[in-house]
Simulated assay, not measured.
Amino acid sequence: MSEELAGRLLVALDLDGVGDKAGLMDRVARALALPDWFGRNWDALADSLSDHTVWPEGAVERGLLIVVRGWQAYAEERPQEWRTAQEVFTEAVKRTDSLAVVLALGGSS
């Protein structure tokens, strides 16, 4: 792991079995323990990923590393949604240097 990623709070975002945007938003909300008022839309996701105040405990001080796994089936089944999700992840990372999102190429287990 690079020096840049070392020490960050690791959050696994497992998308295995997710078949649509609603499922993706639910998984993100659960993995990041987002507040009940999380809007479950692309703008709300971008804002939440960039907003340190809603990050899991410990992430503000250390930074946040989100490892997305089990994403391949969702990407294949919903390519436009997956492109949008990737754009949202990319934009959020650009907004804050203490966030990193990586895609795992292995399975979800």
Rank of each mutant, 00 (worst) to 15 (best):
R78W: 00
V101M: 01
G17T: 08
R62D: 13
L9R: 14
Q80E: 11
G39E: 14
W42Y: 13
G106T: 14
V101W: 04
A33V: 01
L15M: 13
T90L: 00
E91Y: 01
G39T: 09
R95G: 05
L103Y: 14
G23N: 08
D43M: 08
E3A: 14
L65S: 10
Y74S: 04
V54I: 14
D47Y: 05
W55I: 05
E57S: 14
W71G: 13
D16K: 11
E81L: 00
P56V: 11
K21W: 11
R83T: 10
E87T: 03
E77H: 12
D43L: 14
W82L: 05
Q72Y: 00
L64R: 14
V11W: 06
E77F: 02
M1A: 11
G19V: 08
V11Q: 05
A6I: 07
R69S: 15
Q86P: 01
E4R: 10
P35N: 11
G19K: 08
G63F: 07
L24K: 01
E91S: 08
A100H: 10
T53L: 03
L105T: 07
K21R: 15
E4W: 01
P79R: 14
A33H: 07
V67T: 13
R78Y: 09
F38P: 04
K21A: 15
E87K: 04
A92M: 10
V93D: 04
S109A: 15
R69G: 08
L34M: 06
D20V: 01
W82K: 00
E61C: 12
L34R: 00
E4D: 12
E91Q: 13
L49R: 08
L13A: 05
L13Q: 04
G17Q: 06
D97Y: 02
V88G: 02
D14Y: 10
A100V: 08
S50P: 10
Y74R: 02
V68L: 12
W82R: 03
E87L: 04
V101D: 04
V68I: 14
R83L: 11
A33D: 07
L105Q: 14
L105G: 15
S108L: 02
M1W: 02
S98G: 06
S48K: 09
A31Q: 04
V67F: 01
S108N: 12
Q80F: 03
R83F: 09
G7K: 10
D26T: 07
A29L: 04
D16T: 12
G106A: 15
